[in-house]
């Protein structure tokens, strides 16, 4: 019994790490732009595909060291996604900045469609699932019947490292502090002379890069990627962000693991749970939005009316 729980814990930590990375993006975008960037899930998906391309090219170039390939995958996927994110911001979101919620919402949905369809059309065999590259096939540490394969270990560690990196960035650097200040109080930040355009661009760089990293991690973990996998991830990501309180970076990290826990528990406790795990995540999203709109961490502030 203990062993199954330990196994679930390991699985939960692995996927929780990915959700956390995606959630941080959502929360940052919402913070600086009051936008729920539905296209963020597609950026995540794109990260997976870029990682795949890197793996293919590395093979072509004769690089065989798995660690180096994985590192390259992360670096390049994060870089490409950061740029894509910033491009999206510049050409789609900036023109609709400050418009009614509906307009921004539809814009981001439409941008998501564009990215998804572009991958589907222009990636070779884009409409089909692709096998992902894995450097650590079949190698694992076993504690009794609990299996911790190296990929999982690597993923847990790298997600923690990235999260720690985000923490350092937002607390220790000027760029990060400006981001956080903007996200906590837009007007106050503007009064302090923070240039919102720059902050928003940086935010999209950072958030999208994290999304790209999560995409690579997702590929390494499930060993298969598809053009339409961004959606579900997007919803889990923003569920996590909502649980932590939209705009709150640390909350998003916490939310990611909560979502993972819900998912793992559904699979473990409910018969045929794996078919319903997403239902429970979406339900959680609705419940949190309705009953704790400022997240589980903070007590809700009273609103006028």
């Amino acid at each position: 019994m203990i062993e199954t729980w330990a196994q679930q814990l390991i699985n939960g930590l692995t996927i929780g790490g990915m959700y956390t990375l995606v959630a941080v993006g959502f929360t940052l975008f919402f913070g600086v732009l009051r936008l729920i960037n539905f296209a963020h899930g597609e950026v995540f998906m794109l990260g997976g595909f870029v990682g795949l391309v890197v793996a293919w090219s590395a093979e072509g170039l004769g690089i065989t060291n798995g660690i180096i390939i994985v590192l390259l995958m992360f670096l390049i996927a994060m870089g490409v996604c950061a740029i894509i994110g910033a491009v999206m911001e510049r050409f789609a979101y900036r023109p609709v900045r400050g418009m009614p919620v509906l307009i921004m919402l539809v814009t981001s949905l439409a941008v998501g469609i564009v990215v998804r369809e572009a991958v589907k059309e222009f990636f070779p065999e884009g409409a089909n699932p692709h096998a992902f590259f894995s450097p650590f096939k079949y190698e694992s540490i076993n504690f009794g019947s609990v299996i911790l394969d190296y990929t999982q270990l690597g993923l847990i560690i790298s997600s923690l490292l990235l999260v720690y990196g985000v923490h350092l960035l937002v607390t220790k650097t000027w760029v990060g502090r400006a981001m956080r200040a903007t996200s906590e109080d837009l007007d106050a930040a503007r009064m302090m002379g923070i240039e919102s355009d720059v902050v928003i661009r940086n935010t999209f760089f950072l958030g999208s890069a994290l999304g790209g990293a999560a995409g690579v991690m997702n590929g390494l973990y499930y060993l298969s990627i598809r053009f339409d996998m961004g959606w579900v991830m997007a919803i889990k990501g923003f569920t996590a962000a909502v649980i932590g309180g939209l705009g709150n970076v640390y909350g998003a990290m916490f939310g990611g693991y909560i979502v993972a826990a819900v998912e793992v528990l559904t699979v473990a406790l409910i018969p045929e749970g794996s078919r319903y795990k997403d239902v429970f995540v979406f339900l959680l999203l609705i419940l949190v939005l309705v009953f704790r709109p400022s997240g589980l961490l903070k007590t809700p502030a009273q609103k006028m009316g």
């Binding site: 919620v101 939209l246 339900l283 999203l285 609705i286 309705v290």
Partner: peptide
């Protein structure tokens, strides 16, 4: 009923989640 308590983005998310849940239930 739940939508009464939320506005704007949150309302969009609630209805979006509702649509996704219902679609999953239609499948299952």
């Amino acid at each position: 009923w739940p939508a009464l308590r939320v506005h704007d983005h949150y309302l969009a998310l609630v209805t979006l989640g509702y649509g996704l849940i219902m679609n999953l239930l239609q499948r299952n």
